[in-house]
Write a protein that binds this DNA or RNA. Structure first.
Lengths: 394, 394
DNA sequence: CTGAAAGCGCTTACAG
DNA sequence: CTGAAAGCGCTTACAG
């Protein structure tokens, strides 16, 4: 009987233990749920590392590393096995640890027009590039600029030669001179230098990425803005100011878009007159415009498909009649004319972001090995006197 | 003589050696210059590390680390000495190594309205937040959303309570309900929870950052667009569709900006009529507008200072006369009406970037300890049928 | 073809 | 108050 009692007590005790442990589990779970609810942060499962993969595959981390970076010297079977485990575990190497351990340096070259010319457009993309370079400096990236005169093909070719000579890991460039750029691209392909386009594009080349605007559509939008509240039977002037209009394809595309709008909307009954000014000096622009205005008296609007719209604005500022003026790019020279409403609208192409995303595209392709869009079309911004300030700050 | 010859030879030999070494130096220098010129990359001086600082100060790296992160337990003299050396050497700790070594996790809470309401605006900021969260995930950041119904103050208060309960390291929130948001801010201050505002602002609070638009100026711009090619003596309708207009300060600011433009430009001779629709159902909007249109026949433009402009567009689509319609935000519901030109202009406030920069502001303040602007005003974008597509992709 | 070890620049207990 | 050591997750010679 005593023995029985003892056994009974033992059982009770055991049950008690089991009960306790159940309770503990319960409490823990409860705590966990409570924790989740109140802290709102689900306990993240431990991050898997290259060591985990190595253990699972029964190899050393060195071998896993070889597989990850595809640098050979691994038997096909081992390779396959490791790859499978990586896939299953959704393993992604830690980029921070990778960069820290690696001594690899990446050298980028940036080949863009200089800003001292009569249009300061390129300052903004450079600001964006600087921002990106600063942000990613800890990835072991060095970047150097190479500038050229966009109206001087020899200067471009000289710099293009330097690019090839220095064999960078990546090239960011603005193919504003069509023919010369095609040649550089061919050299890059021969020398295995990956390249990204900014600002203008060469569609039929096999580039990594293009960052810029849809030039045709931007002209189309400009035409829409031109047509707002326009009197029927108006005459509109398109003024191309460029030394080599035929070699500057993005300007031609803007012209095309502009004309297309009025073809699509024939009810506007607009007459478009296009003039090309190949001498970009202010005096020549003034003289040319004066001659045009003498001939036809009822010009209601002017479209300048480049940042040099301020040259036309300077001329118009002397006139008495208000003529709607639309141009491109929020550069310093254009700002006073936007402020005094000589220029009504500027079409802007996010120059800072062009630069920023250009550098980031190189980083993504070459360092982070991340997929990204081949064509990154930036918004076509409409800038007026009223929203000007918030595009400057940004 | 032989000896002499030998000595002479020795001298010649020595000279030759010296000559060779000079040559080598020359060649090296030349090579270096050549290298620099052609490769365009200046040899970067070795990066200084915490170990260098420790060595220079004659202490261990542990002590340097204590000084860098100001966690005490260092004698004032040692501290001063180390600080001086850090300054002189322009030492910046390697953020990558720091994050890798540190096990610190940051918990962010994002408190924003939900999207299932009758306006899907908040999808875009969330997309931007997701993008940022993905980019910075390797910094040990966990983020959780908390949503509320922007027309239901009780729902906001419930979620605000959860925020305080879970004591996050940082809070990103949209103070759309003015009074309730002020209360949450006070709680945050009491509990030492840093916070960043997105979309709307409470100017008189001491927030880390505000990311959003200048609401007054956006209304001003809308008025300018309204005035383009408008007939004199027109009547313009401002339609506020909101259950609690008095508690939604950014909408009131847009109204103010809109009216200010016409005060500043009295030559337009515009009459503005404002109506508030507090029941946001389509039927009620239709009925209200119908009543208004019956009374006054010559309404030439309508301004809706919120994303609910599509409700007015639905009504106008049934009318024969073309009325200029301007509203806010590129949300799904508005797109068809922009495409068929019932809506002429949408003012957009970079919703994706609001979200993106909101998260980044928290990262900069809390993790990277980087200074950044208190007020980040995003551009006031003008969207039309013609540039719509490039704002969608972006 | 594979593994063991040192090292990247920092942080974190722990010992004194 | 201070230092030595282990470790974060990877890469890189080097040895076999």
């Amino acid at each position: 009987m005593y023995a029985h009692e003892n056994t009974k007590n033992l059982f009770i005790f055991l049950f008690f233990l089991i009960f306790l442990s159940v309770l503990r589990v319960r409490t823990r779970e409860k705590f966990h749920v409570y924790f989740s609810l109140n802290c709102l942060f689900i306990k993240r499962r431990k991050k898997i590392t290259i060591t985990d993969i190595a253990r699972l595959a029964g190899v050393s981390i060195g071998t896993v590393d070889r597989v990850i970076h595809d640098r050979g010297q691994v038997s096909p079977e081992t390779r396959k096995k490791i790859l499978k485990i990586i896939e299953k575990a959704h393993f992604r190497p830690d980029i921070l640890a990778s960069v820290l351990a690696s001594k690899k340096k990446y050298r980028f070259i940036i080949l863009i027009p200089d800003s001292q010319e009569d249009s300061s457009f390129w300052k903004a993309p450079m600001a964006g590039m600087e921002k990106a370079i600063a942000e990613i400096s800890h990835f072991g990236i060095e970047a150097r600029y190479l500038h050229f005169d966009q109206f001087d093909t020899a200067s471009f070719q000289k710099q293009a030669h330097k690019v090839i000579q220095s064999k960078p890991d990546g090239l960011l460039f603005a193919p504003v001179q069509y023919r010369q750029s095609v040649n550089l691209v061919k050299s890059c392909i021969r020398n295995h230098i990956p390249y990204v386009f900014v600002n203008s594009n060469i569609e039929d080349m096999d580039y990594l990425s293009y960052i810029g605007q849809d030039s045709v559509q931007s002209g189309y939008l400009a035409a829409k803005l031109m047509s707002l509240g326009l009197i029927a039977d108006s005459e509109i002037l398109v003024v191309n100011i460029s030394k080599q209009i035929a070699n500057h394809r993005h300007i031609l595309k803007r012209n095309r878009g502009f004309e297309k709008y009025f073809t699509d909307h024939p009810d506007n009954k607009i007459r478009i007159k296009t003039i090309n000014i190949e001498n970009t000096s202010q005096e020549f622009v003034d003289l040319t415009l004066e001659a045009v205005f003498k001939k036809s008296g009822n010009i209601n609007g002017i479209f300048v498909p480049s940042s040099r719209v301020y040259k036309v604005a300077k001329y118009l500022a002397g006139l008495k009649t208000k003529i709607r003026l639309i141009g491109y790019d929020l550069i310093e020279e254009n700002i006073p004319f936007l402020e005094n409403e000589t220029i009504d609208f500027l079409i802007s192409q996010k120059p800072v972001e062009q630069g920023y995303h250009g550098i980031m595209a190189l980083l993504n392709h070459l360092v982070l090995k991340k997929e990204c869009n081949k064509n990154i079309y930036l918004p076509i911004d409409i800038i007026t006197k009223e929203n000007l300030n918030y595009y400057l700050e940004y």
